[in-house]
Design a protein around this nucleic acid. Structure first.
Lengths: 201, 201, 201, 201
DNA sequence: GTGTAATCGAGACGGTACGTCGGGTCTTCTG
DNA sequence: CAGAAGACCCGACGTACCGTCTCGATTACAC
């Protein structure tokens, strides 16, 4: 008869409070979403907002970066459904969602954090890539691949390049347009048309 | 008797030292290039490194952002010569230069700063757009326009889209590729081929 | 049949560990003797040194003062034997012992604690009086009283004053002499001579 | 012609604010007088009460002890006038003043601080000796010496012993009497009578 | 035996104060 | 007047203990 089945031995002492952990992450996210830059984001303020002692934060994360990384990780970036009627339709839906996203203050803040501190806080960018970039790239990849299989696109399409061109074009506009330019309403259509015209049989 | 002949009236008192100004800018650039994030970039450290009092900095710039903006402005981003043999050749040269640039730590730092603090320091992004982005966009635009005029590209090419697709694709790779992926050596060629294939008559 | 004969009813549950109690007291005394002030004396450090959880301390003493009081109580202050050959001889023996005591670091620490925190920790001074001061005063009182009875001292001697003058003079020297003064070797003799000269018939 | 007469060269930069210094000392004294123990006396609280940044305190004193030392130094302990009618009269006046002093909460606090932390903070006791003890000892010494010169006391009086016995006896009572004992109203008289009886010709 | 119940160690909890760093402002003297 | 030097108040940093609170494990007696 066996009384102990697991190999992991429980650590002695009071276990860490999951509630506190959640409160900290929530407070951090809330403050990021409120537009606080990662530099302004003070541990002291997070602790106060979470109703938690500073020690409780430092016990878990040894610096601001690691906390922000974990806070970011808890954010699920919704990816639009792509019904697969046609490659063009799916791509336009995808790009439109990206464009909409870029207006949300939360997304902007997260992107800024992920991008801006990338050299000092490499984990951060890395994590952002995993959580935000990769799933979206996969979604777009499957759209293109489906197009190749259905014959809608040429069989020799350079898939990675296509993904980069589509995503990059949209990013270029949302990030680097001149301020006084209005983003044209049919931006996703125009990007899709330009890129896809080179991919059709 | 006249001691002041120019229309600009000289302010009384000791004139501001150009040497100090240069020393400040140089120190700021050096620290940015050393990998100091814009948040870590302390005025106190710049003053010390430049051998200058803090007052001398605050007399010229009212906060960190404005100083960084001016420091950035002093950096000339070299744009490659585009000899005009063919659109494809010029585009590849341009993209290769972008790619090379993205490896230089200085460029990386500047880009990070320009991107990352964009919401908190909007002037910064604005300035970066003027100094770095716009001239490059113009260079690329003229390449494409030349291609249209020479008949190498279709007359109805969506020029802005083409620029965005080309630049964005390259940026997408340099910024968002997975760490373990190697950037393929023929990246500029492949981007150019994919995009241009949709633009030819 | 009776299993419990005493009036004190045993409490249910696991009894408190005498070993732990002793370890705590010992650790506290050791740290006091090591020169740790009562303010620096951290409960956490005592617990660690005693190999005991903090709870085990707080279960017994509700704060630092009470623990120190009990630690003090466990120290027996040795009083010299006073053989009673003459009042002068006994008084000198007594004063010499006091003087010797005042050099021991342990005594110094205890006295400092007992004196220094007396307003904040009144129990402490009270306890110190009981354990250290009173027995010594009694010893000295009996010496003087013996002298009165034997006719060596005047019958109308103000006993309390005599005790105070003898003890106080010695304390004054050990505590308030200027640093550069050396304590004269015959201090006890000189104190005894001065005070006793006023008490003889 | 000379414009600078002193040898001390002024240090560059903004001079330290005497106002701030005073405010800090005042706040510290006020808090000590309010009964705050030296352990409870937090730098943060002093800074707040003085309306001063913590840095401004740490710039002047590197730790709590040094600040308290200087705060103590600013307190003048008033010594009673001793008119010199007779040694007995002066001594009684002096002792009565000591006794009265010992009731004032401020004096009690200062004494506790000066005594209690004497091993950890030796500067403190040293300073206390200089400022409080020595002037009083000198006052008492001159009384006794006057008595010797006027023939009121024996010419071979051990002056230091006499000082110690008088001061020590009073201290012994005010510090070490049992709580329930009342201090007799004629304490100074009785001490003076006992000690002086041994000093008269 | 098997509860029942208080103890044990360990250590996490919300706090307070520590001493340090840098921000942006100010105040002084020197050029 | 501008310059350097550096003090000013402020606020966040990361650390050390406080006294309290959970944990699982232990240890005694009562049933």
């Amino acid at each position: 008869m066996v009384t102990e089945q697991t190999g992991t031995v429980r650590t002695p002492g009071r276990p860490r409070s999951e509630k506190a952990e959640k409160a900290i992450i929530d407070a951090a996210i809330a403050m990021i979403a409120d537009g606080t830059g990662v530099a302004e984001l003070s541990i002291e303020a997070i602790a106060a907002r979470a109703g938690v002692g500073k020690t409780t934060i430092y016990r878990r994360w040894s610096n601001k970066e690691e906390l922000v990384v974990d806070a970011l990780a808890s954010l699920k970036a919704p990816i639009p459904e792509l019904p697969g009627l046609s490659v063009r339709d799916d791509v336009i839906r995808y790009l439109a969602a990206m464009q909409a996203d870029s207006h949300s203050p939360r997304t902007r803040c997260i992107m800024n954090i992920a991008l801006g501190e990338s050299d000092r806080f490499p984990h951060l960018t890395e994590r952002f890539r995993e959580i935000v970039v990769r799933p979206r790239r996969e979604a777009l990849r499957s759209v293109i691949q489906r197009g190749v299989e259905s014959g809608e696109l040429r069989p020799d399409v350079d898939v990675e390049m296509a993904i980069a061109a589509l995503s990059g074009a949209m990013m270029f506009f949302t990030k680097w347009r001149d301020n006084d330019d209005e983003l044209p309403a049919d931006l996703p259509d125009r990007i899709a048309d330009l890129i896809l015209s080179g991919l059709r049989p």
